[in-house]
Design a protein around this nucleic acid. Structure first.
Lengths: 243, 243
DNA sequence: CGCGATTTTGAGCCATGTCAATCGGAGTGG
DNA sequence: CCACTCCGATTGACATGGCTCAAAATCGCG
């Protein structure tokens, strides 16, 4: 393996900073705990696009996404696929046992870089690391809350509602990154990925996007989404707010 | 409040036994830990049908269902409702903050009796209670796994598949109770409850049930489901197995 | 017996799925 | 540079599952 260039190392450092800051912001992780956590997990794992993050043992595992996107997927016997959750930089992922041929588990949707936080998770059992433990469980609670949102999306929303709702969730989650307007961000998902996440067919995803594009409400080009009329989009999903 | 009759107390004891045994079986709770847990939470709370189990504080709460059914629900602004999870005796429930008017949170679908395990949860922080802590987190992990199943149901299954799939899940979960055949069990859910859980309309639930009844595959009468042709029903959902 | 809640049924429509074909861009090998 | 292939996006025609509206029928219960 070639020695990584200094530019690559610098880039990785920036990515690590962003991911850890995002985690800290979401979970209220204290700076001292953050630096401890960062030092305790020096190894960066890299998965190629399409790889499965299979958990090797039966024990609980924990990873921090540093760069790239991952998805928790289930594949049915007749090859229908459901994406249950999306994970992007700053998120904490818990790979569980995978089926032998990678039919369910966590899949890398793009080239993926993560840190293995499993040792940190074990170390956090010790009482003096209560802050770290709280932060990690907070991160898992966030994941849980997102799954509830997803259930509501799948059970109650129409196709455009599902799509817009998901895009706004991603908008929120990506806000800490991307420098410019939060209404424009990279979306490295295939329309088929979107379909599998939202429980719709690819064809219908495509048509729904076309409608929204024709209405000049959003645009997807070169893997970048732009919400042209955030207000109007919000109105479409206004009725779907919980409360 | 009137003194409960001895018959009522005996009934409650049986219900408590069943619920705790179910919990122990699901989570591998050791007998000694079980009896400690049972002694640590002597108070039984009773909620009338339709009540919300609102969490009073911001802290994490935990309850054990002893008798009756509960549902985690989300109500949208336009009054669509999604049931995200069902909880029955032996299950552990985590009520979260509820909206002021009970629009989302955990609702009692029938008259509900539970034990408040919150103090036990706090006590389980102590290292000598590791067994209890493991059991409680195991119970929460089971809930999590069921939510994934539910996501797949909503995202990928057709109406009959969703219905049968859910009925088989309930069959499994109810097996420890009901004395006779596991293929026949009480289902105290309204068709509207089923519709809200499965993301379908009441009318369509009704029609789906009618079809299955006409095919002599199942029967629902007097709030009791009977799976008449478990094999054929299994075949209908065969393609929906994850693997 | 009467009332509200639930179940059942019909008619018609719309959202979404399926099938199939085309199109465009990114490799890749000659 | 071109031909070829593959993958993803796009589009059309058509089928259908599931929804809505509205009305009966039934059940549970005071």
């Amino acid at each position: 393996m070639a020695e990584p260039s200094s530019a690559a190392i610098a880039w990785l450092d920036i990515a690590l900073d962003q991911a850890f800051n995002c985690l800290a912001r979401n979970t209220g992780l204290e700076p001292s705990a953050l630096s401890w956590l960062r030092k305790s997990a020096p190894r960066v794992e890299i998965f190629p696009k399409g790889a499965m993050l299979s958990s090797t043992g039966a024990t609980r595992q924990l990873k921090l996404v540093v760069a790239g996107w991952a998805a928790e997927t289930r594949v049915l016997a007749d090859s229908r696929r459901q994406i249950c959750a999306l994970h992007l930089p700053g998120d904490v992922v818990t790979p569980r046992l995978s089926a032998p041929h990678g039919l369910y588990g966590v899949a890398a949707l793009t080239k993926l870089e993560c840190l293995d936080l499993t040792p940190a998770l074990d170390a956090a059992e010790r009482p003096e690391k209560a802050s770290v433990r709280r932060a990690l469980t907070a991160a898992l609670t966030i994941n849980e809350a997102r799954r509830y949102e997803h259930i509501v999306r799948l059970g109650q929303h129409t196709a455009p509602e599902r799509l817009i709702h998901l895009l706004f969730e991603l908008r929120e989650r990506l806000a800490p990154f991307g420098g410019g307007s939060p209404d424009s961000f990279r979306l490295p998902l295939t329309q088929e990925d979107l379909a599998d996440a939202l429980g719709l067919s690819v064809v219908h995803i495509n048509r729904t996007l076309r409608q929204l594009r024709a209405a000049r409400m959003l645009e997807i080009r070169f893997g970048t989404v732009t919400l042209l009329q955030p207000r109007q989009l919000q109105e479409i999903i206004a009725a779907t707010r919980v409360s």
